[in-house]
């Protein structure tokens, strides 16, 4: 079933399911909490800039957890930072999503063995929806991650609890 189940002749009435409408609204305005921690932040900034223009996906960078839908963890998460990430994630309103950007946030990256202070993957403290691999990922990869997240949101349902 697509977004528009039936379109009436006068053009002012649309018929769709509530799920589709809500999901469409959510996936079209994924406001982003910017969490630039390392070099991934530079690629995140490049994605926000005019060449890649993250806003065409409805992603708007915000600086407070109260106003966001998706948390971009871009960079190396230290153990000191882990508790802060957890706290700000808890302050986000539901539905909330997490996009882990780059090898460090995914699994510890180059610090997996000798990084005594590095959290080996942000999914040890908060649940992650989309992992974007790369060190750092190119802006195209981050955009692909956003599209993957949008696909995930599109499949959600009010009655069926998502995982």
């Amino acid at each position: 079933m697509g977004l528009l189940d039936k379109q009436f002749q006068n053009g002012n009435v649309l018929v769709t399911s509530l799920d589709t409408l809500l999901n469409w609204a959510r996936l079209s305005s994924l406001w982003q909490m910017q969490w630039g921690l390392a070099c991934c932040a530079i690629e995140m900034m490049a994605t926000s800039a005019s060449n890649f223009d993250i806003m065409r996906f409805g992603v708007i960078p915000r600086a407070t957890p109260r106003q966001v839908d998706v948390l971009f963890v871009a960079g190396t998460v230290t153990l000191k930072m882990a508790s802060r990430i957890k706290r700000l994630y808890d302050q986000m309103a539901e539905p909330r999503y997490v996009l882990s950007m780059g090898s460090c946030a995914n699994c510890g990256g180059p610090y997996w063995e000798h990084g005594y202070h590095v959290l080996k993957g942000v999914d040890r403290v908060i649940p992650v929806d989309v992992y974007v691999p790369g060190c750092p990922p190119r802006p195209e990869a981050l955009l692909e991650g956003i599209i993957k997240l949008q696909e995930k949101v599109r499949k959600e349902s009010l009655v069926k609890k998502s995982a």
Binding site: L79, S83, E113, K120, R124, V125
Partner: peptide, 9 residues
């Protein structure tokens, strides 16, 4: 562990 979070890979 550090503060309840597993540290080694």
């Amino acid at each position: 562990f550090y503060n309840g979070v597993k540290v080694p890979y």
